[in-house]
Design a protein around this nucleic acid. Sequence first.
DNA 1: GTGATGTGTTCGTCAAGGCGAACACTTGGA
DNA 2: TCCAAGTGTTCGCCTTGACGAACACATCAC
Lengths: 212, 212
Amino acid sequence: MSDADSARHHPRATAEPQAGAAAAGGTATETTGPLTHIASALRRERQRAGMSLTELARRAGVAKSTLSQLESAAGNPSVETLWALSVALDVPFALLVQPARPQVQLVRAGEGPRFAADRADYLATVLSTCPPNARRDLYLITAEPGPARESDPHMPGVVEHVVLSAGRALVGPSDDPAELAPGDYIAYPGDLPHVFEALDPGTTAVLVSEHT
Amino acid sequence: MSDADSARHHPRATAEPQAGAAAAGGTATETTGPLTHIASALRRERQRAGMSLTELARRAGVAKSTLSQLESAAGNPSVETLWALSVALDVPFALLVQPARPQVQLVRAGEGPRFAADRADYLATVLSTCPPNARRDLYLITAEPGPARESDPHMPGVVEHVVLSAGRALVGPSDDPAELAPGDYIAYPGDLPHVFEALDPGTTAVLVSEHT
DNA sequence: GTGATGTGTTCGTCAAGGCGAACACTTGGA
DNA sequence: TCCAAGTGTTCGCCTTGACGAACACATCAC
């Protein structure tokens, strides 16, 4: 994540250091505020779920009037309110808040920034670092047989997904790894010690690291 | 996503239809409320960024007092406030709100629910459906050469990532697909028409569908 | 037609969020 | 030692979010 400053977490961050007072007052100009997105997202998800305004309000335990104002982009809901709505809609909270920005991106097998490997027989290529909203990285792993590669646990809340492409490998929590064949998949908490040990030469895998 | 109702979007959803009134009142028992998580997440991320309470407040344009109360789990911030903080911290909004729940999960190459394929020469196996917070699915694609498989565009905001494991394939937006070799990676907006056309027999790939 | 149920909207009221200022408290020069 | 500059905390005050009730409107049964 170090040299991926080009892709930051917010589409058009506007953290003006000095002009913060503007955001403090009630009449902020609100550059890319989440409120308009919330309004449309709420209406869209509610209709997708086939709920009436009244019913959603009842299920979420919020006033019908509040919900109406929110869908009109009037007002700035509290987290609890929006949380209740996301639960009632059975929709991830983030979906109600975050704008998105997709793009086409291509990385050839050889290309892409290699991850500094402490050993020559293990190579991780970064395919995609966390975009605006999600916190997940995509790696291509290439490894040769040898002693098990112990990874130090990452930040709490990290989940790693591994799909084996070729060869065989011992992957998973250090205390109970699984032997994967091509096509096999495993997911495990990344904040616990875990291993990736190639058993066959030319072993490759796709690794998704989810930062929650 | 149809038959994956086991994994829902919220850790312990408590959308009681009738008892919604409880959540409405101020003194709700607050089962898995995001407020306590926000408090700890805010403090953690702020310290990780090496910021003082005063500095973060200044950058985000929120009152120092407000921030202090939030980190003490006192109060229920508005979305705008929390948004400003997430921008100032350069951290995805969701990270401040969502609890997480990692687990070990293993799917063997043959196992896992197959995705209903409209053609015999294209098989998608679900490896992992969207967990509590993220909205992304993991598929293993197995395809044989044949006419291009056109996918109808999905919901807006969807991004698909493809890493080719074996064989060769033409993947990407319909108007400009890329020929992938093993190890190649491509990402593209899923809300536009796109193709997956195997060029070699036994072509396999890993597909990450991000619902943003 | 007319009442009954549904939709989503707009009112007035009250509690709570967010604000600046004043407050204890530790640190490091002079 | 004392003052200055930093930390994070607690105060009144005003603004505003969230509420319930009343509202206008469409639909359907009788």
